[in-house]
């Protein structure tokens, strides 16, 4: 016969074990769900593809960040050094289209970032700021247009009047 205190201790231990297991189970479930949110396609469990070969783009099953003909399909950004830093910092509030339709020098891209930080709740970009400005000033640099460009992309058609 066990003493009542022993019996109590034993059941307390059992409960505590059970609680621990339930807690652990919840943690595992929680972690799984959080993981699912961040990487819903379990892309991290597949072998890392080599981005520098053409074949990879087609082999790549996770097409979330697919690059086609040098364009990041999801956003329309040009592929280049710093692309994902730009995608991750510059498409949270506004569309990538607001970036890709603009052309600016490094100074003016930087001034735009500063304006967004002062008025639009953009966060401190830290070391990423230089990466972003370099990317933008490289791939979205101003081109000379002159005072009036030629009419372009004209689709000719026969006019019936």
């Amino acid at each position: 016969m066990m003493e009542p205190s022993q019996k109590f201790e034993q059941s307390a231990r059992a409960i505590s074990r059970m609680m621990g297991m339930i807690f652990a189970l919840f943690m595992v479930m929680g972690a799984f769900l959080v993981y699912l949110m961040i990487d819903p396609t379990f892309s991290a469990f597949r072998p890392d593809p080599k981005v520098d070969t053409v074949a990879v783009a087609t082999v790549e099953e996770d097409d979330y960040d697919k690059i086609e003909n040098g364009i990041h399909v999801r956003t329309g950004f040009v592929e280049g050094e710093g692309l994902m830093t730009v995608v991750n910092n510059c498409t949270n509030c506004h569309s990538a289209k607001l970036v890709t339709q603009n052309r600016m020098s490094a100074d003016r891209w930087r001034a735009t970032i500063k304006w967004m930080q002062e008025t639009q709740n953009l966060w401190d970009l830290g070391k990423n700021e230089d990466i972003i400005v370099t990317y933008l000033a490289t791939y979205y640099a101003p081109e000379k247009k002159g005072r009036r460009p030629n009419l372009e992309n004209i689709e000719w058609y026969a006019l019936e009047q």
């Binding site: 929680g30 769900l33 959080v34 949110m37 961040i38 892309s43 960040d65 994902m84 991750n88």
Partner: peptide, 24 residues
């Protein structure tokens, strides 16, 4: 840099930021 690396780099931050939130 691809999305996977972003996930690796930001995983911890995202975890800590999200644990308090309703994620289900």
């Amino acid at each position: 840099m691809n999305r996977r690396k972003f996930v690796q780099n930001s995983g911890l931050t995202a975890l800590s930021a999200l644990l308090g939130a309703e994620i289900v």
